[in-house]
């Protein structure tokens, strides 16, 4: 669905994005994680056709997004600071969206009012920041986009609204296979929402994985042997981390669970536990050296 190939972008002399490639499958929720200034917003704006990359391509359904109304009609972009025309009401904005986006759905707009509980005839600028963001969600969902690109969308929303919005997103994805790209600097918030996670650090994509695969792909193993650790034991394992506590060996190992079990069993360990990792642990081990740099997103 969304396909970025070797994308770069430089602002003045500052290279914000350095050769990023990423793919988002249709009907997935992609979480783009990164600390402040990692380049998340820039990348999202490229997907929305606002910023043109210096090099590389940003394709949606095989077509370049930049200056392509056909594709852009199917994308909704929610910036971190939502924008409305000065002195307008939600009603007026809805009329504007209706004239711009053919997919705008009047009925849905009316129905969503029950969820957002805002007065559509009130000037948006009189709303609080959180309410303005809700208004933006309301309008975005009413246009029924195929692709929803959101920059730190849940910031400044209270827990109830946050849940409401998440529910709508999940529902839309399930019902119409909407594709979602969400940026955040908070891993926890993304954990229960995203199918796929990409970590951006200083303009580079450090890491891109499906969450389910990630969880089944890495394991914590505790083993102990009667006569010490066999010499060839570690050779065939893809060990990410290794620690020995007395006679107990603690390993973080990559690979299929079944394969690991069937590999270790023949060594006849005295103790053998295979445990799942928390997402945080996965990140810390996966990221290895650069892990320290992104610690702040794993709080």
């Amino acid at each position: 669905m969304i396909h970025l190939t070797n994308v770069t972008k430089t602002f003045d002399r500052f290279q914000a994005i350095r050769g990023v490639s990423m793919t988002v499958q249709k009907g997935r929720i992609y979480g783009l994680l990164g600390s402040n200034g990692a380049g998340k917003t820039t990348l999202l704006k490229m997907m929305a056709g606002i910023i043109r990359p210096d090099h590389g391509t940003v394709l949606i359904d095989g077509e370049e997004v930049w200056e392509n109304p056909k594709i852009k009609r199917r994308i909704m972009f929610l910036p971190d600071h939502v924008y409305f025309f000065p002195q307008t009401t939600i009603e007026q904005m809805a009329a504007f969206y209706e004239s711009i986006y053919p997919s705008f759905h009047r009925e849905r707009f009316t129905r969503l009012q029950e969820i957002f509980l805002l007065d559509p005839r009130k000037k948006i600028h009189q709303f609080s920041k959180g309410m303005q963001r809700q208004a933006a969600f309301w309008l975005a969902f009413s246009t029924m986009p195929d692709v929803l690109v959101m920059d730190e969308p849940l910031d400044g929303l209270d827990a109830v609204v946050r849940q409401k919005v998440k529910n709508i997103i999940v529902q839309e994805v399930a019902e119409r296979e909407m594709t979602v790209v969400i940026s955040s600097h908070n891993l926890r918030e993304m954990e229960d929402l995203c199918d796929c996670i990409g970590i951006l650090h200083e303009g580079e994509m450090l890491f891109e994985k499906e969450l389910d695969a990630m969880k089944t792909d890495i394991h914590k193993i505790q083993v102990a042997f009667r006569n010490g650790i066999p010499k060839q034991f570690a050779e065939q394992l893809n060990i990410v981390y290794k620690e020995q506590r007395g006679s107990v060996l603690l390993l973080i190992v990559r690979g299929e669970k079944q394969e690991i079990v069937s590999y270790i069993k023949p060594f006849q360990p005295l103790i053998f536990d295979i445990l799942p990792l928390t997402l945080e642990e996965i990140f810390i081990y996966e990221m290895g050296d650069v892990g320290y740099a992104i610690e702040n997103i794993i709080v």
Binding site: E67, F77, H81, Y83, I100
Partner: peptide, 16 residues
Amino acid sequence: KPSSDFMHSLPVQRAE
């Protein structure tokens, strides 16, 4: 910035 981002995210070509 916000208005520029907004207007340029719309499905309207710049020439138009």
